[in-house]
């Protein structure tokens, strides 16, 4: 395996993005910031890969216009996944492993505010036996949360602690859309919204985009003084059907974490769009009491669809660059109730 590192990360997030669903206007300044960070130009990038969704934008081929932000003449080597951009990062990491390229720029974007997100996501379910009922994301998460509560795997207080920690941590994150010091009791004082969930147990619906630059060891030193070296990146998927798996667990997260070597990380950025999902992930990834969780505030502070997972990897890498962490993981999830999970473990050297 070649040594590959995260050497650049930029993001923009907001409650509602005023521009087009292609998010080109967001990507232009993000790319500019990455070139400033790395000292590179587009000609230094060997491979481009993005993650986005047509159904989020409400039109076919929504990713096509985003290519304009690259300035893709002369043509570029480029690919796209209909997934969170964390999986685009995986594809880019693979491309670098083949030896065909030494560098890659990965981006994700989405304007969830254009539609009714919790309804749109019902289209991710079984189209024959589930989608016609339009089960919304919050209800599915609520059923998962209740199972855990009633089986004694967690309680409302533990969930509230996740929320309070997120809101407090988000104070330091200029891109978080939900932030403010909060105690566990403050959270518990809120009324229930989708019993057993409070609104604050749910990630906000917001817009945004993000991008990461990867480089192989031959080039990483040019762009960063302390690159975040990827020591393991793995992803797995569970069955979709809610009855076909134990919803209080996430076997795919556990398997990805184990394969990626998540043991011993001192910091983890977890993509948990609902508070109890952070509790599941902590256990499945074997994170200890000493692991610093979501210093960015995590997805409960801001959860831009199709880039939120990539942002977790970027936020973790940032802490390594800054010397705050020696071994960190970034996690991404996709699908209902933590169906699909990716873990990227990085080290500073």
């Amino acid at each position: 395996m070649r040594d590959v590192a995260v050497v650049g990360f930029a993001q923009r997030q907001m409650k509602e993005f005023e521009g087009s669903p292609t998010c080109v206007e967001l990507l232009v300044p993000i790319f500019a910031e990455l070139f400033e960070q790395t000292g590179w130009t587009k000609d230094d990038i060997g491979f481009w890969c993005s993650g986005s969704s047509d159904y989020l934008a409400g039109r076919s081929f929504s990713f096509v216009t985003a290519v304009d932000a690259i300035g893709a003449l002369p043509p570029v080597m480029e690919s796209h996944v209909e997934m969170d951009a964390a999986w685009a990062l995986y594809e880019a990491w693979i491309k670098i492993q083949t030896g065909e390229v030494d560098t890659a720029l990965v981006y994700g974007f989405g304007k969830a505010s254009a539609g009714v997100l919790r309804r749109t996501l019902a289209l991710q379910l079984d189209p024959y036996t589930m989608t016609p009922l339009w089960p919304d994301t919050v209800s599915i998460a609520g059923m998962q949360a209740r199972l855990g509560i009633e089986h004694g795997r967690w309680d409302a207080r533990a969930m509230a602690a996740v929320v309070a920690h997120s809101r407090t941590s988000s104070l330091d994150n200029e891109y978080a859309v939900l932030k403010g010091a909060m105690s566990v009791d403050d959270v518990l004082a809120e009324e229930l919204y989708a019993d057993p969930l409070r609104r604050s147990d749910c990630a906000p619906v917001n817009d945004g985009a993000a991008a990461i630059v990867l480089a192989a060891s031959e080039r990483a030193g040019e762009a960063s003084t302390r690159p975040a070296w990827i020591t393991g990146i793995e992803h797995r998927v569970d069955p979709l059907h809610l009855g076909a798996r134990d919803l209080t667990r996430s076997p795919s997260a556990a398997a990805a974490g184990k394969a990626a070597g998540s043991a011993g990380v001192d910091l983890a950025e977890l993509h948990a769009p609902f508070s109890h999902q952070e509790l599941i992930l902590r256990e499945e990834l074997g994170l200890s009491e000493n692991t610093r969780i979501n210093p960015s505030g995590g997805a409960l502070g801001a959860n831009p669809m199709f880039s939120a997972g990539l942002i977790r990897i970027g936020e973790a890498a940032k802490r390594i660059w800054a010397g705050e962490s020696d071994k960190a993981l970034g996690h991404a999830t996709s699908g209902p109730a933590l169906q699909q999970n990716l873990v990227c473990v990085m080290e500073g050297r």
């Binding site: 309804r119 339009w134 609520g142 209740r146 989708a194 057993p196 969930l197």
Partner: peptide, 21 residues
């Protein structure tokens, strides 16, 4: 076996008044 309350149903759900999934 488990349930969640739908306090604000969205279009085309089985019931248009609050219900449980």
């Amino acid at each position: 076996q488990t349930w969640a309350w739908v306090s604000e149903p969205v279009d085309d759900q089985p019931l248009s008044v609050p219900f449980a999934f």
